[in-house]
Amino acid sequence: MAKITYVHPDGTSSVVDVEPGNSIMRGAKLANVEGILAQCGGGATCGTCHIYVDKDNTKPLPAMHDLEDGLLCVTASPRQDNSRLSCQIPVTEELDGLVVHLPEKQL
């Protein structure tokens, strides 16, 4: 299990034990954490699972591919340097303790 913290726009947070193999997106969905829409179910085609990885993160994240990079340019909340699509980050034991911030809006 890896502990992932989802910080909501109002500053409150949800801490979830996510089973490795699930994405950050799916981890939120299974724990009923609101704020990630994931309209395409994780296909990297909708851009509604946008998150901001905590600025202090030092944990290794997978590289970004072109589809993700493109979609991040058209997300509903503005892209920042730490923007990612949560469906494209599989949770591993190494990510235990990761903190991600949810955007104001996904659509």
Partner: peptide, 10 residues
């Protein structure tokens, strides 16, 4: 769109 998700979103 085929393999053009950005076009689709826009």
């Amino acid at each position: 769109s085929v393999n053009k998700p950005v076009d689709h979103v826009l």
